[in-house]
């Protein structure tokens, strides 16, 4: 994989604090140590039920972009190693006018793992996701009940801009701004700093974000190119770079690959597995294989209810609820 830590040319960064005088998230929880446990690697063959494979065949998990992945790196699941809880949903309900789109959901989102949200169309996945950084507030008819906490602080008590800086979002349709590649990634860095930082201060951070998003090698020659001239997959990775440039703590992704070809999807999936080390990630997907490939935990929603929540192996391998079985069975059976 291109983006392995040890292969990545390291960029010398001035501390982010230098760039952002007003860093909203003063103290951040340190990353948990992610040792490379000998993992139970699952292999997935698209038209077979998932099985737990032997550690001898790890490369099936890592969707490497070219080179064969090495065991013990991004291609490996951190199963059995739950990080600290970052976000907690208590009896969360969301209504559009009087129609409930999300019904009393309890859920926890942990550092260092990927939570995959699955469920049929219209079951409230996007609504749930957008509630996590209060984007639903842009919809006049939306109303929320229940509590969402970020590090034990109710998100309603946080400044909404602060919340959205800590809980970033990547949308279904790539939405790069009509600016250069550089300006896209620099956008949040610039907007979030008090005094307008110069290009020299920002450049290393832009470099770093593009590198982590796995886009650097493709665009490094011309960062002034219009972002809208990139391919769809590149645009989506640019949006990821833009979202992670300011080092958020939680990354929300709403069907990030639905507009992309299999190759770009593969690249983004391996990127997710890589980013998981530093972030809590919630991903909505219609692609059950994808949920299985990237998800540590999976939440299955149906008509606004959270029907089942558990480790990916459990939800796909031995679903408890009949509804889950019906839904998941269709994909793997």
């Amino acid at each position: 994989m291109r983006t392995h830590d040890d292969e990545m040319p390291k960029v010398k960064l001035p501390s982010l604090q230098d760039v952002m005088d007003a860093d909203p998230a003063g103290s951040r929880v340190p990353d948990p140590v992610h040792g490379a446990l000998p993992p139970p690697v699952r292999r997935i063959v698209l038209d077979q039920p998932p099985t737990v494979a032997t550690p001898a065949a790890p490369q099936t998990r890592a969707a490497g972009a070219g080179a064969a992945p090495t065991p013990g790196h991004g291609g490996v699941r951190h199963a059995g190693e739950p990080g600290p809880e970052r976000m907690r949903l208590d009896a969360l309900s969301v209504f559009y006018d009087d129609k409930a789109a999300v019904k009393s959901v309890d859920l926890s989102i942990r550092q260092g793992e990927v939570l995959a949200l699955i469920g049929p169309s219209g079951c409230g996945k996007t609504t749930l996701l957008r509630t996590l950084n209060r984007l639903t507030e842009l919809t006049a008819s939306a109303r929320r009940e229940g509590r969402i906490a970020l590090d034990d602080t109710d998100i309603d008590e946080l400044e909404v801009t602060t919340l959205r800086r800590r809980v970033a979002m990547v949308f279904q349709q790539p939405n790069p701004f009509p600016m250069s590649i550089f300006d896209n990634v620099a956008y949040a860095l610039r907007e979030q700093s008090m005094k307008r930082p110069g290009k020299a201060v920002i450049a290393p951070h832009v470099h770093d974000a593009l590198q982590r998003a796995g886009l650097w090698d493709e665009v490094k020659d011309d960062l002034d190119r219009p972002a809208l001239r990139l391919s769809g997959g590149q645009q989506q990775r640019l949006c990821i770079a833009r979202a992670i440039a300011t080092r958020p703590e939680v990354l929300l992704m709403d069907e990030p690959c639905s507009a992309l070809d299999p190759k770009s999807t593969e690249v983004i999936e391996s990127l997710i597995l890589e980013l998981r080390k530093d972030l809590a990630i919630v991903i909505v997907t219609h692609n059950l294989q994808q949920a299985y490939r990237v998800g540590d935990h999976v939440a299955f929603m149906y008509l606004g209810d959270l029907v089942e929540y558990g480790a990916a192996e459990q939800v796909f391998g031995a679903p408890r609820a009949q509804r889950t079985r019906d839904y998941v069975g269709g994909a793997f059976g």
């Binding site: 602060t162 970033a168 939405n175 701004f177």
Partner: peptide
């Protein structure tokens, strides 16, 4: 495009 506005707001910009 709505995506541009939402994209900016989602980055913590008022």
């Amino acid at each position: 495009p709505k995506g541009w506005k939402e994209g900016a707001v989602a980055l913590g910009v008022n």
